[in-house]
Nucleic acid binder design. Structure first.
Lengths: 191, 191
DNA sequence: TTGATCATAGACAGACCTGTCTGCTAGTGT
DNA sequence: ACACTAGCAGACAGGTCTGTCTATGATCAA
């Protein structure tokens, strides 16, 4: 099974690029098939329906984005309070990347009807991120970890959304700055 | 010209409802025509292309949402600092509304390619809101009005995005709480 | 050699999309 | 009475969408 996974990977890589750049509905399977150099039958063998490719796409994005988020957090040092601030460096890096078009999950949710598997997948992602933030806030010794985690999540998602609109290139820095203030306030109440 | 505006209004009202509920690409002009009880020729007379209807839809949303935002701010009293916090009540009200599906502009931007009139329209909206927040922050006597305005905008857009994902029903309250903290911090530096 | 498996190439069906066009009806101002 | 305007009804063209199908070539194991 050497070449068998190759076709699947080519499809998924192409879908990743096109879905993110143009939107899910705007990209037809025909285009993905053409750009990935794969036969139609092969496509439908690996992904019996377009929606399953969309789910695989979201899984891929989840893995990448979560990894960047954790890496940025850990780069800030061992202190969970520092990590809650440092993770915003991942936002800054993402926004500066060429062709940045915001959060793939927020975008996918905008196109999918509530209740559909695709929409549920985006909800699951946001919940997982929030759980991670809650853990960090708890270990940071925040007075109200739940509230702090939610606030950080709001700043993060706001930064992702605003970056997509390109309305404010300074958004990531403002988000990090605000996060620092919130973390300090939550910690000072304890100290 | 009594009935003449009626057809146009019916089209726009139907589009407003359907575009927001299902997404712009997911709604075809045929459906809008059928649900608004209008002839196809009449539709294309008022809106020569679908994109023009989309722009009219965004204008309508802009008027409504901006109005709600300002009303919520003014309900908090005459102090600009209070208004910066009070405006989040509009977010709470919106999120509780049945069929809430997030910010129409963020959703529209997710479907439109950057550079298109529709995308530009969303950017203009966010810029207008940011300018309003900047004015409020300045009049509130904040140390760094630009930074405070951006932070408030991030919390607002984050709340809109998260509410759409329905991942966190408490998001509006958390956003208001965080905003109160940021406003207090920015003001205390002056006092 | 032969059969199984995986790939490619592309025709095809059936639905839906935007936008144009032709007829027809009804009210309105002159 | 007559022209004008606004609207309704729906056929039509040309394109795109998802998904199925047939036919063919390449690889590899028995």
């Amino acid at each position: 099974m050497v070449t068998s996974s190759s076709a699947r990977d080519r499809i998924l890589d192409t879908a990743f690029r096109l879905f993110y750049a143009r939107g899910i509905r705007a990209v037809g399977v025909d285009l993905i098939i053409a750009e990935s150099g794969v036969a139609k039958a092969t496509f439908y063998k690996h992904f019996p329906a377009k929606d399953e490719l969309v789910l695989a796409y979201l899984d891929k994005v989840d893995g990448i984005w979560t990894g960047q988020l954790r890496a940025a957090a850990e780069a800030a040092g061992p202190d969970p309070a520092d990590q809650l601030v440092g993770l915003f460096d991942a936002l800054g890096t993402a926004c500066r990347r060429d062709g940045y078009r915001g959060c793939a999950f927020i975008n996918a949710a905008a196109e999918a009807a509530p209740g559909t598997p695709v929409h549920e997948r985006t909800v699951a992602h946001k919940r997982a991120v929030l759980a991670w933030l809650r853990d960090l806030a708890t270990r940071a010794g925040a007075d109200d970890p739940e509230s702090l985690a939610r606030s950080i999540a709001l700043l993060l998602d706001g930064g992702l959304a605003d970056g997509a609109l390109a309305a404010d290139p300074e958004a990531p820095r403002a988000a990090k700055h605000a996060a620092r203030g919130l973390v300090a306030a939550a910690a000072s109440r304890v100290a």
